[in-house]
């Protein structure tokens, strides 16, 4: 299992689907661990009742069907598919509505879904998902990207309420790939994935959704920032080590004749 996880951080994230499916076939007895620890680009499905797309994950799956957060129905249809309690479903509906606005403000497009379900001891788990196609043929407003995808998975465990506070534990993963392409500069692709955790004890006075939302917003900001500043920056530093830029003031040697 350790070796499998080491492989997943070495192989390019663009190949993560192939890598995971081959690991699953080599290590069938670790399949549950692999599926929960390895994140893959998100898939979407159409809610046939409301004609609205939703995101698939392990948390809304039962057998081969997935529950839509919009109609609360399984697609393909499934009899007796488990549903959240009425109380959690109410929170789920509200979370989906608000998260749609949040997603629009930060992503200017994309798809989002939120799933909430009971955990043991009066606690619950919520999963916030965002998928954005930022390519110029997708939802890329500025049209800079030949190809661009951003998939975010936020799983947040909310402990039982005690004396007005609850414990929140958030695990977030972002997977992205962006490609720019033109004649003079060629193809430039950056792809990556990072996962981080954050825990807080917070007063529930303002409600769970407010607490979860703030944590997710803070985490997404941090992840975006470290991808941009640290991870992309390190790959750039490496290129400059391979071929250091000439000191300023030195002219290019132009072709003679």
């Amino acid at each position: 299992m350790e070796a499998a996880m080491d492989l997943m951080r070495r192989i390019s994230p663009k190949e993560s689907e192939t890598a995971l499916s081959t690991l699953l076939s080599l290590l069938p007895h670790h399949s549950a661990d692999l599926l929960s620890q390895v994140d893959l680009p998100l898939q979407v499905c159409m809610d046939q009742h409301l004609m609205k797309e939703f995101i698939l994950c392990e948390y809304n799956r039962d057998a081969d069907s997935y529950r839509s957060p919009w109609s609360n129905k399984y697609f393909p249809p499934l009899e007796d598919g488990p549903l959240p309690s009425a109380q959690l479903r109410k929170l789920e509906i509200e979370a989906n509505e608000v998260f749609t606005v949040y997603r629009d403000q930060y992503y200017e497009g994309g798809i989002s879904s939120v799933y909430i379900w009971e955990d043991h001891n009066e606690s619950f788990i919520a999963c916030f998902l965002i998928k954005k196609d930022g390519s110029r043929t997708g939802h890329g407003r500025r049209g800079y990207l030949q190809e661009g995808s951003w998939d975010a998975v936020h799983v947040i465990e909310v402990g039982p309420e005690e004396e007005g506070t609850a414990h929140y534990c958030l695990t977030s993963t972002v997977m992205l790939s962006l490609t720019t392409e033109n004649k003079s500069s060629g193809t430039f692709n950056l792809s990556g994935s990072i996962r981080r955790q954050m825990s807080h004890d917070l007063s529930v006075a303002e409600g769970h959704l407010c607490n979860m939302g703030k944590m997710i917003e803070e985490m997404e900001g941090k992840l975006r920032n470290s991808l941009d500043q640290v991870y992309f920056g390190k790959t750039r530093e490496m290129v400059c080590t391979l071929r250091p830029p000439p000191p300023d003031g030195i002219q290019l040697r132009l072709p003679e004749n």
Partner: peptide
């Protein structure tokens, strides 16, 4: 984490 740069021309 795991971030790759691939550039070519």
């Amino acid at each position: 984490g795991n971030v790759h740069l691939d550039a070519k021309n």
